[in-house]
Amino acid sequence: MNDIRKLDFAWVMLVLLSVSGAGLGGAIEPGFGVTLVVAAVMGIKVRIVCAYFMELGTASRRIRQLMYAFCYGMPLLVILTSLFGPSLARLTGALV
């Protein structure tokens, strides 16, 4: 697959993941399983943008690490907040 076809494929994947991910919002009862799927889809989509559109694979290590920390940190926080929401609320009680 040449680089142009890879870009086309990345775009199709992003659109499909976005539309199917949106379907999760209306179709399924909320729960931890849904949260996991939503976080995974979020992580996959941002990974596609980083790899194919931003071409971070050839970027300097610091740039790559910063972007990956941000891109994977958010889905991780989604899962952690779902698992430990009450603990986070207790820890941050003084802020609110």
Binding site: T35, V41, M54, M67
Partner: peptide
């Protein structure tokens, strides 16, 4: 693309995740 990435995070947090 960074602006895209940020939206790809905002979208599930406000429109999908319940």
């Amino acid at each position: 693309h960074t602006t895209d990435i940020i939206w790809l995070m905002i979208f599930p947090l406000f429109y999908v995740l319940r």
